[in-house]
Simulated assay, not measured.
Amino acid sequence: MALKFIDEVEVQDKVVIARFDFNVPLDKKDLSKITDTTRIDMALETIKYLLDNGAKKLILMSHLGRPKGKVNLDYTLEPVATYLANKLEQDVVLTESCLDRGIKTLLTLNESKIILLQNLRFHPEEEQGNQEFAKALASYADIYVNDAFGTAHRKHASTYTINGYFKDKAYGGFLMKKEILALSKIVEKPKAPFVAIVGGAKVSDKIKIIERLIVNVDHLLIGGAMAYPFLVAKGFDVGNSMCTQDDVKLAKKILMSSSKSKVVLPIDHIVSKEFGGKPEICNTVEIGGDKMALDIGPATINLYNEKLAGAQTVLWNGPMGLFENNDYAKGTLAIAKTLSEMENAFTLVGGGDSVSAVMQSGLADKMGHVSTGGGASLEFIEEGTLPGVQALRFGIDLN
């Protein structure tokens, strides 16, 4: 059954309730200020479409932070309401809670077309996926829209359970559509040659995605701290580099598989005697006893560029080093630059740190798709779908 999106439904004179991901970072010194509005900006296409196509009322809902099921005004959605009102140039009414008795009254008024429900996670029932809570949310509207791809891996009330109350009336928004179409190019039939670049801190965090990808890729390029357990598994000394025995065991398992020849590891490093200390080049695979590697070296950058040459599909998840520190950002930024110049390939960047790195490089608009999903995009690649996506597609049985 095909997933339906909002451009396939008549919203004229309908009350629409829509789940977004407005979980934006706030300034720690001034919680009324949003430090990065990207997630709200990416929702505007769907919001404007619903308003422009005659939705009678638009009820927006989201979580913000981790208030742990209690009212905590440090996590109020008030800054989001203010920002949306400025961007949309019309009033956005923020309710006192998701279950505010005044919401039904607001729905009868001609003014206040846009209603933003207060933080869903002020209610423990949201994360519990509670049916009564989902039913209360559903009672406000005729149509449900989910445009919160970043939370679609959770079986929460507003992303999963609520679908049970909108049989044949649940739709994906435009951001959801973009994410699913882009990630499906990786999951279903990626055009060969297919190269995956995986970085980050631990093999254990990425073992599922590695096992999923290694079957289909032509090359699996590994960087970041997770490269060192692989090097240890191959018998190399990595000095004081980040490495646990559990990760070495997982790396050995991968290197014993029939796909082991696809794994490409660093051949040189940028090292230091202390975390974030003065950088030095280590021209060999092995690292001296008192040094730790914090980035891939120039020879590795060249090797990885050779493996990327001619690729038709590229997935990048995770940085190549401690990219937050300029001394150890060269490997990560070099990968970003190479991907930005691959005009004939579909390039997908997924996962928080690699997305941050691409944003930092200023090359995000040169990529095929930069996923906003974080953990959701990883889980989609691992599993081929997500609970929230499945619920949108097939509905859920509440019995």
Results as ranks from 00 to 15, higher is better:
Glu127Val: 11
Gly374Ile: 07
Pro190Ile: 03
Cys243Arg: 10
Thr105Glu: 15
Ala152Trp: 03
Phe174Asp: 04
Val15Trp: 02
Phe346Val: 10
Ala334Thr: 12
Glu78Cys: 10
Val263Gln: 13
Leu77His: 03
His156Asp: 12
Ala293Gly: 15
Gly200Arg: 13
Ser257Val: 01
Ile396His: 05
Leu231Lys: 08
Ile209Thr: 13
Lys135Phe: 05
Ser272Tyr: 08
Lys167Ile: 13
Asn23Ala: 00
Lys185Ile: 06
Arg393Val: 03
Gly368Ile: 01
Leu221Arg: 08
Gly362Ala: 00
Phe5Asp: 07
Ala357His: 04
Leu120Ser: 03
Asn130Thr: 00
Ala2Gly: 12
Pro25Glu: 00
Met242Ala: 11
Thr338Pro: 01
Ile59Gln: 05
Glu45Val: 07
Trp316Ile: 01
Tyr171Gly: 02
Asp7Ala: 04
Gln131Leu: 12
Phe394Pro: 02
Glu96Gly: 15
Ala364Gln: 12
Lys57Val: 04
Met367Asp: 00
Lys104Ala: 14
Ile207His: 07
Phe174Val: 06
Leu255Ser: 08
Asn325Asp: 15
Glu341Val: 03
Asp353His: 13
Ala293Met: 09
Leu117Pro: 06
Val215Asp: 13
Leu213Val: 03
Arg212Asp: 04
Val248Cys: 12
Met256Ala: 15
Pro67Leu: 02
Ile180Phe: 04
Lys191Thr: 07
Ala233Asn: 08
Ala299Cys: 09
Asp168His: 09
Leu31Gln: 06
Ala55Tyr: 11
Lys262Val: 10
Asp295Ala: 12
Ala225Asn: 14
Ala138Arg: 08
Ser257Asn: 01
Gly375Thr: 04
Cys98Asp: 03
